[in-house]
């Protein structure tokens, strides 16, 4: 039976928003590690961001729902732990969209390079943890706005 190309499946996955940060897609986040066909079964390999991230099961459901809507019937979701997810896998587009959304993208230095609202580099950390496992809370000392920073791991 003819089935859609893996490129086609990647394109579909690229339209699924992250359930907790809808500004970026699952492929922007870098958690889709592989797409392939095993006979007539479409196998999507996903890696979790954090081992306890509550969005993981929701993400799997979103992938399955989206692919079914595109007519795929047999779908297998594989969990891959290694290599462990790193924010280095986030796409350039994802980083840009995060910043536009008001979340400072991850930086190798371990903290945001600037405030996503006003661009000031005069920022300080409020807490190492934030509203989701992948974020920390920072504040801009110039525009005084608090903002989320996407933790670098």
């Amino acid at each position: 039976m003819a089935h859609p190309s893996t490129e086609q499946v990647w394109d579909w996955l690229d339209t699924i928003p992250d359930p907790e940060i809808p500004a970026i897609t699952l492929t922007d986040l870098g958690i889709i590690r592989n797409v392939g066909w095993d006979g007539d079964t479409c196998v999507v390999t996903v890696t979790p961001t954090y081992s306890g991230c509550p969005a993981t099961s929701l993400i799997n459901m979103e992938i399955e729902t989206a692919l079914r809507e595109h007519g795929l019937e047999k779908i297998e979701l594989k969990r891959q732990l290694s290599p462990a997810w790193t924010t280095d896998w986030m796409s350039e587009r994802g980083r840009r969209k995060l910043e536009e959304y008001g979340i400072a993208p991850p930086q190798p230095a371990g903290g945001p390079d600037k405030c996503p609202h006003c661009g000031s580099t005069n920022v300080e950390k409020l807490s190492q943890f934030g509203s989701t496992p992948c974020k920390a809370q920072w504040r801009c000392k110039d525009c005084l706005e608090p903002f989320d920073y996407f933790k670098c791991i």
Binding site: P48, S51, G52, C53, L81
Partner: peptide, 20 residues
């Protein structure tokens, strides 16, 4: 509030590790 969130996130990581 910040500590509340930090503790809950730490717990979440630990429970994720538990399930693995």
């Amino acid at each position: 509030l910040e500590e509340d969130i930090a503790l809950a996130n730490t717990a979440l990581d630990l429970l994720g590790q538990t399930s693995l």
